[in-house]
Design a protein around this nucleic acid. Sequence first.
RNA 1: GCCGAGGUAGCUCAGGGGUAGAGCAGCUGAUUCGUAAUCAGCAGGUCGUGAGUUCAAAUCUCAUUCUCGGCUCCA
Length: 647
Amino acid sequence: MSDIKITLPDGSIRNYPAGTTGLAIAQSISEGLARVALSIEVNGEIRDLNRPILSDSSIRIFTWNDKGGKYAFWHSSAHLFAEALEALYPGVKFGIGPPIDNGFYYDVDLGDKTFGEDDLAKVEAKMSELAKKNSVFVRRDVPKAEAIAYFEKKGDPYKIELLRDLADGSITFYEQGNFTDLCRGPHIPHTGLIKAVKLLNVAGAYWRGDEKNKMLTRVYGITFPKQKELEEYLIMIEEAKKRDHRKLGKELELFAFSEKVGMGLPLWLPKGTVLRERLEQFMRKAQIRAGYDPVVTPHIGAKQLYVTSGHYEKYGKDSFQPIHTPDAGEEFLLKPMNCPHHCEIYKVKPRSYKDLPIRLAEFGTVYRYEQSGELHGLTRVRGFTQDDAHIFCRPDQVKGEFIKVIDLVLHVFKSLGFENYTAQVSLRDPANKEKYIGEDSLWDKAEREIQEAADERGLKTVAVKGEAAFYGPKLDFMVKDALGRSWQLGTIQVDYQLPKRFELEYVGSDNQKHQPVMIHRAPFGSMERFIAVLIEHCAGNFPIWLSPEQVAVLPISERFNEYAEKVIQELKNQDIRGFLDDRDEKIGRKIRDAEVKKVPYMLIVGEKEAQEGAVSVRRHGAGDQGTLSLAAFVGQFLTENSMPVTA
RNA sequence: GCCGAGGUAGCUCAGGGGUAGAGCAGCUGAUUCGUAAUCAGCAGGUCGUGAGUUCAAAUCUCAUUCUCGGCUCCA
């Protein structure tokens, strides 16, 4: 057999007999690598380690440290799960079982059986038992007819449905132990590598993601090559749960919900309101600098307004229903969007090309009837406030304006320490054009403009089809919460449709009427969601300028309350948000309580401080900072307290 | 909206057919204290809501509501 040339990632080239395997290559490099190798990338395609390599190739061997390795590991774990499930509950029908960012899931049809906590433990145990058998994952090409026959005999209708969409000749089976699955692979060499198994939760999931289909049972799980890594992962999850904004929001008294008020309708408590208003001030300032004009519009609008905008047709039936008045036929809608109102502001007078761009900004509270199962803390609510603005500009200004908005969004993210965001270009789904309004040419134009603007600012973007708004494409800034769920914060949208529907116009230099273009944008997105993610991002330890309670003044004993009062009064005179803890408690207790409340600064005052006009400074999480004169502390604090401003 | 799991004091949770418990928080008193919890006492719940089974329901059944985990949706 002739030799083939294998190019390694470092560029070196080695000769191997044709038909060698990834495992053999790994072994030739080092036994250690062979032990931890999970999959191999051959000319860009990730494959099994034991699949023969027939021609010259560049390869990269993946281990647990590579995404490609983890995916193969978790994909194989899904198969192991299926094998265990089938062993325990014969007759289970299988859907799909892919690897995901953290583990894997498998969608299964258990018939009448409900699957609970006890079952998870049972299947977990079975998986561990089967893993120890070191079953090899065997890949096999299968003709389509044979594949269908196999699953018909087995009684797996979902697999047959999947097979119908696959071309004959491209179908492979993987078999390990007593389980055979339709699968493209790749898989790890054998089940014995899976040393730690945890099934995390059970959920419902529609077959093929379509709510018209049957709901299957989805079991999420994760596995590791070492028991210790599983333990670390579980600890990490526990830690993440501590950052959950719903938990911290309660503990820090930022917001609350009440069944009596209604689900999904947040109540902002005093401390949460301070935080929220600080953010609002920050945005107002940035927007004034960027040339926006603040406006205010009512919370309701006549139904016809939304019929004109198209929102009524699109969302009317599954939304808050119209408000009726004593006048027959008169109907108002709670505003679900601010844009129609802003369009009418644009229309109050004729506009010249010289007036554009016009940037109308409003912290507009909107109401949307989200599906009950969708509500989630502050991230998904039925009443929320957008830091909304609409830019009305000439076609030649679109890109420039778009870029300016990108800069504003990036300024916001940078000021608040959001570094891990994804810039998502949300395009329409070409397969479902009826979901959108407007001509193809304008959509293409808008989509192009967004991509160009993002490129011009050097944003690394991910394009996702089907995520556009019904009237136009978007650039969405996605950020993950503590538990890894992705949320849309900032959004920028180019819109050629509403100007048309509202018959917006301006007089050009040619003395002719033209249609402006609208850019919808909200850097925070919604105050509620932004704050939710912010809370999780900083684990409730807000930057000083946002902190609801900035300074706790803690007298050593009642004898120093009088001096403490003077200190707190001075802080208030300087617009510093402080409070006095004059409870009859020991200083250790007062410090503990302030630490738990995540108050950034504690000023401890006793005999010495009272005499010297000083304060003993303690920083949250950092401990004793020594003693300063009150004036020196105030000076230092005010410097640190400044709100970030646009460069 | 769909599938599944839950709801016991302000918070975190135990109890699981015989009429409710802990810790923290709260209140009262004592203590006057130097960098993450002083001590003692008191008070606090129609066990989410409504029906049903039962001599008896927080506990079993059903319905309903809200919460949680996903799915679908997200202007």
